[in-house]
Simulated scan of single mutants.
Amino acid sequence: MASVRLDSVRKVYDNGQVAVQGASFEVADGELMVLVGPSGCGKSTLLRMIAGLEDITSGTLSIGDKVVNDIAPKDRDIAMVFQSYALYPHMTVAENLAFGLKLRKHDQATIDRRIGAAAETLGLTTMMDKRPGQMSGGQRQRVALGRALVREPSVFLLDEPLSNLDAKLRHSVRTEIARLHRQLGTTMIYVTHDQVEAMTLGQRIVVLKDGEIQQIDTPMALYERPANLFVAGFLGSPAMNILQGRLVQSDGLFLQTKQDLRLPLGAARIDPGWLDTELSVGIRPENLQPGSGQAESFEAVVDVIEPVGNEAFLSLRHGIHELVARVAPENLPRVGDLLKLHVAPDRLHFFDPVSGRRLLPG
């Protein structure tokens, strides 16, 4: 096992495109770190630089105590799992698992021991004579994981390994990866655009946008204390409601939007200097609740109701404002109903509307 450290790592292509802008962070020995962001944010490029598949334009990359900028991929003691499985179709599961070990001239006893252990861990023992074409997507992804596992590397790199699977299989293989990490205690760096994968797998998460790191923290810290408007809107499903307006104090605290929504904020904790200034206010869907008995409430029309079992999502409209509330599935309103709502004042998020950065009282 080994730590991975990036110091101002930057990638600029020959055409001048900046794919990664000075990334600096450390993945601790044995940590599972997730790189997440929208398509084109630089997360896969960053992973490929760690793997040695992309040259580093500037900065320093270290694995353990060794700077590896100029070290070939095969000598970095890493194993990579790709989105496309990359299995040899003419080989059996056993032959796919053994192929890399044979190339590295391991003796047969070592190969048999490692393949047996990986097959047992991943539930592949009854499939060793099958070829990839005879297997489901989830089974093939487990073989791809097993091929990395038998290498016994210092660092595992996983590049969107679940994106080709259906929802049920994604959950199953995601659980498998989490269990493997706990069992092996190996350093893992996992790339995904799926925030659910990021939140459920990562011990810490690196959020990227346009090649630049936006925030690094634990999943719940990112959710509860997003550093800026991008992180606030990217993490969470449904996404955070964002409203922009002027903060006013008049028989209570309100956000007065340009479209004449007067949103009562109750006893929200603010900085006095924010009054009469333009702010963006974020409200998580679970913190926007029906409340006909609340004095500090406003009305919105129910546009769409999405019951999903243990909860329901209400798409709401107040003038031109579109809002989403997460509510209990009992006693749901009907489409077209005028619903009274109130916000949880102690769960509001305030942001500078120009820079997007999070604002804190004091």
Rank of each mutant, 00 (worst) to 15 (best):
L124Y: 02
N228W: 08
M128R: 14
R5V: 15
L180F: 10
P226S: 11
S136E: 09
L61R: 00
D276Y: 04
C41H: 04
D29S: 14
G30S: 05
P353M: 12
E54Y: 07
M128F: 07
D337M: 10
M135R: 07
R10A: 09
Q259D: 12
F230K: 09
K66V: 13
A72E: 15
Q249C: 13
M49N: 04
D260P: 01
I50M: 10
L348M: 13
T257N: 05
I63Y: 03
L53K: 01
V173P: 00
T92K: 06
D260E: 14
R10Q: 14
A28H: 14
A119W: 11
S280T: 15
A344M: 14
S136L: 12
T186F: 05
P89V: 05
P345V: 06
V231E: 00
L169A: 08
I242T: 05
P361V: 09
S136D: 07
G282I: 01
R151T: 07
D75I: 09
D77L: 02
P361D: 09
R147A: 03
F351V: 04
E286F: 07
A79H: 08
K340L: 04
M188H: 11
D129M: 06
L253P: 00
V196K: 04
S292M: 11
D166M: 04
D251P: 10
P345Y: 05
L332H: 02
H321R: 03
D129S: 14
E212P: 02
I78K: 02
P353I: 01
Q203C: 10
G146K: 05
P161K: 01
